[in-house]
Design a protein around this nucleic acid. Structure first.
Length: 573
RNA sequence: CGGGGUGUAGCGCAGUCUGGUAGCGCACCACACUGGGGGUGUGGGGGUCAGAGGUUCGAAUCCUCUCAUCCCGACCA
């Protein structure tokens, strides 16, 4: 492609409202433009990368045996009423009316449509298992779209849905999709991890998220340093360290005044103790609007996802207001402690292992020192202690092998074993080999296609711009001329090379603009094209072309005669 | 939806406090010089100062409302 016949629109400065690096670089490199909040136009440069991502996904999905379909983005409300999600989904579902005042929604996902399709089309167990996928535009009316296409309202997603007679069969396809996702993200050239995940609101059993590792990721992932274990921090369990908690010491329980010391930091500083020797007591709403105390070690953080799964705790987790705490427990939140507290108390096992600890005294301005569970608490039972804290760096790995380190990731894929939630609601069934009707079992598998593009940038950039993995670069090679206008030999060589490069199948962007070479370098580095050759009088006099990889620090010279094989070898067509 | 910003030329901003000719840099157009890392000069084009209402002789500037947008919290590919 010649730049003169393409559309290049780079910005020297990032627009002020772009915060994250991928958003800034996508705007500056002329990949996208914002139309409205969470809505983006893909410009020619960005679209080339988007299409490459799609194609890799499509190829690998096809290889896995999945079959491509394309469903409408607008869906009738009736299907959503059948699954009961019309009422459950909330304002994120963009609802609309047609001219006859019939209700529709813009699809945020396609479980209903595909299940409806399958119940009409699939009659026999002999047609199973089957896995349909599409690459299609979704709309989710996010409360706060942000970070450019990373969290847009309209976005492109690859969604696949598999149908089975049995859970065993589903598990097989699930494994195939797991492997396919590994292949896809490997081919995309991204550093990623498959992690165990919460099944969340979609429901179902097994679930894995695929995360692209990047500093700016919104999710925290816990890894074992010894095994393959990886899990979203929201989900990662924390193992009990001891079989029995530390035994009490001789020191007596002591009540001390801690005037105006409310937070853990304040109390620690005031009493000169470490946060790990203090217990914090959080009051949340339980089932039936009772209050429940969650007790954690002072240096640990509550894991809300784990806590709200406990039978007594309301889901979603909700903290009690100060007034209710004051009215029902007799003091302000800053002085609550588990000793003689008049409500259900759930103790995190790390807190239950403490001895001689500090805790609130349930009296404004007072704490206890030297508290011990077995000695000072009636009915304390270590075995009933619960796991409600966030795993932290250095904790033992949940699978028992090695310890945990934590990295940040961007969720780009998610696979679920759905079960029969939708097939049951929509009565999707087939006849089995016993001639009996059987409800289908489903799996679903998503990849955020547009998000992959942003995530790839978050993982691959420097101060000059994007550094594309070759598989998804908009162009593979930059052909730049120094002062072509004034040099016939440069111009002739560029035309010759451009033609020969095209014959190799390498996708080159030939910058034939009459601009200073510095400008050309800046533009091509910003766009992130992985390979670059420069043709100049200076080089040609020595019979050389200059080559530089986008991530290289030094350029190298290559004899003119060898440049095409050299490039073929570098770019591996 | 709560909290905090921001809306002035395509982009980045000043001007607003203290009302009085609409500005700067980049980009764009023309010409000339220049030519291996965002060069120089000369001359240009482009704005309903987010919108509406109000105060005033006079409003980008003061007041009221509306809209848009970004950042921090709960959701998700």
């Amino acid at each position: 492609m010649r730049v003169s016949q393409f559309f290049l629109s780079t910005l020297k400065e990032p627009p002020a409202d772009a915060e994250v690096i991928s958003h800034q670089l996508m705007l500056r490199a002329g990949m996208i433009r914002r139309l409205a909040a969470g809505l983006y136009t893909w410009m020619p440069m960005g679209l080339r990368t988007l299409r490459k991502v799609e194609n890799i996904i499509r190829e690998e999905m096809n290889k896995s045996g999945a079959i491509e379909v394309l469903m409408p983005s607008i869906q009738p409300s009736e299907l959503w009423q059948e699954s009961e999600r019309w009422d459950q989904y909330g304002p994120e579902l963009l609802r609309l009316h047609d001219r006859h005042n019939r209700e529709f929604c813009y699809g945020p996902t396609h479980e209903e449509v595909i299940t409806d399709f399958v119940r009409k089309e699939i009659r026999s167990y002999k047609q199973l298992p089957v896995n349909f996928y599409q690459i299609q535009t979704k709309f989710r009316d996010e409360i706060r779209p942000r970070f450019g296409v990373m969290r847009a309202r309209e976005f492109s997603m690859k969604d696949a849905y598999s149908f089975h007679l049995s859970k065993e069969c589903l598990a097989k396809t699930y494994q195939i999709m797991f492997d396919t996702y590994q292949n896809i993200f490997t081919r995309l050239g991204l550093e990623f991890r498959a992690v165990e995940a919460d099944t969340g609101s979609i429901g179902g059993n097994a679930s894995h998220e695929f995360h692209v590792l990047a500093e700016s990721g919104e999710d925290a992932i816990a890894f074992s340093n010894k095994s393959n274990y990886a899990a979203n921090v929201e989900l990662a369990p924390v193992n009990k360290v001891n079989d029995t908690p530390t035994t009490q010491k001789e020191n007596k329980l002591e009540k001390i005044a801690t005037p105006n010391q409310h937070t853990i930091e304040e109390v620690c500083a005031f009493l000169q103790v470490d946060a790990s020797q203090i217990v914090k007591t959080l009051i949340v709403i339980g089932e039936n609007d009772t209050l429940i105390a969650l007790v954690l070690r002072g240096d640990h953080e509550l894991n809300a996802v784990k806590a709200q799964k406990l039978a007594d705790v309301a889901d979603p987790l909700e903290f009690a207001c100060e007034k209710d705490i004051q009215d029902q427990l007799g003091c302000k939140p800053g002085s609550i402690g588990p000793l003689n507290l008049n409500c259900t108390i759930l103790i995190d096992h790390a807190a239950a292992e403490l001895a001689n600890f500090v805790c609130g005294a349930n009296e404004d301005g007072f704490h206890h020192k030297e508290a011990n569970w077995h000695r000072d608490f009636n009915n304390f039972d270590y075995d009933t202690s619960v796991d409600i804290r966030k795993i932290i760096e250095g904790d033992a790995s949940p699978d028992g092998e090695g310890s945990v380190s934590i990295k940040r990731g961007i969720e780009v894929g998610h696979i679920f074993q759905l079960g029969d939630k939708y097939s049951r609601a929509l009565k999707a069934s087939v006849l089995g080999d016993d001639s009996k009707e059987q409800i289908l079992t489903m799996g679903c598998y998503g990849i955020g296609v547009t998000r992959v593009v942003a995530a790839a940038i978050e993982q691959n950039f420097d101060e000059h711009g994007i550094i594309w993995p070759q598989a998804i670069a908009p162009f593979e090679l930059s052909l730049i001329a120094v002062n072509m206008k004034k040099s016939n030999q440069v111009q002739t060589m560029c035309e010759r090379l451009y033609s020969e490069i095209q014959d190799t199948g390498i996708e080159a962007l030939f910058d034939d603009r009459e601009l200073r070479v510095g400008l050309l370098f800046k533009d091509h580095e910003l766009i992130g094209i992985p390979h670059r050759i420069v043709v100049s009088d200076r080089g040609l006099e020595q019979g050389n072309i200059e080559y530089k990889g986008r991530a290289d620090t030094e350029a190298q010279t290559v004899p003119v005669d060898e440049i095409i094989p050299f490039l073929k070898n570098k770019i591996k067509i």
